[in-house]
Amino acid sequence: MKGYDYYKPDTIEEAMKMMSTLDGAEYIAGGTDVMVLIKKKALSPQNLISLRNISELSYIDTDNGLRIGSGVTHSRISESDFIKRHYSALFDAVSNIGSVQVRNVGTVGGNICNAAPSADTLCPFLVFDAVVLIAGQKGEYQLAIDDFLLGPNRVALAKGEIVKGINLPALGANSGSAYIKHTRRKAMELPIVGIAARIDIDAKGHPNDWKEAFRRIDDISDMLRLLEKERFVCNDARIAMGVVAPRPIRAKKAESALQGKVISEGLLDEIGRIAASESQPRDTLRGEAWYRREMVHVLTKRAVLMALERMIHADSSNNPKTS
């Protein structure tokens, strides 16, 4: 291993200053990616600037939406009941990244900045319309996650800039989400395909306690039939797909096909088919393209279903405040 020096600034300002003065410097957060790259000689920094001790990066703020500091670890997110209940897709993603050992040090900022096509948090962030908060030379600015992601391991950060955090807008009253990570094993995995879905239902014209009837239903097909019969309409939907393109992408055609439509089993299958047609997977040793495409079809349907189920079973009194 080539030698490097290691710096531990306390503030963002200090870190950015170091980056501008030190030669061959790289930021390091949890290190689960950076340290591996260094060990594999894919990265040979002269200096590492650690972001771990910057307290202004480690907040979780749940007032009116959700704001997470980039230094927050996956474990901390997965321990948040609020996130589990309301931003379920994000919970799904962070609670199955790598292993406990990885989640205990890996940070949300690291995951989005590494921007692997398989990065688990990116699909959920896409479906929550997340905004990346960036500390730049001229101050802070924001960038939609969709614009932040440029390609495999490439993000829209200028040299020295630091992702400060990520902001997720507040959710509608009848919103549910899910992330499905399709893997060979149940842990220590990168997804073969990752699918996140968020769906908001228009409950106008339905009684206040409309969910009660649904909660008594065990069978998922019955639930769908009732949604169709009662003519529940999708208000808003997001679907994001990982590992099927150079970067996680939204299935925008599938989203529009869902928008304003009455939920039905047939519709969900159609959505899956459309999403699959929007994916551009490749054959790799980790999975074949045709299979990935098939999984987009199947898992999109399942993710939307899971999101619907969660929405129905969510305790409405605890829903986040709407803006």
């Binding site: 060979r184 094993r185 149940k186 842990a187 220590m188 995995e189 990168l190 040793l285 980790r286």
Partner: peptide, 28 residues
Amino acid sequence: LTEKLQVVEGRVMNPNLRDYKVLTALDD
């Protein structure tokens, strides 16, 4: 179900524990 050393034209393509799928404790 899961294990295979992927050898392509003589070269081992999955020389790590992430891509060589030994089962984990969660694969109950």
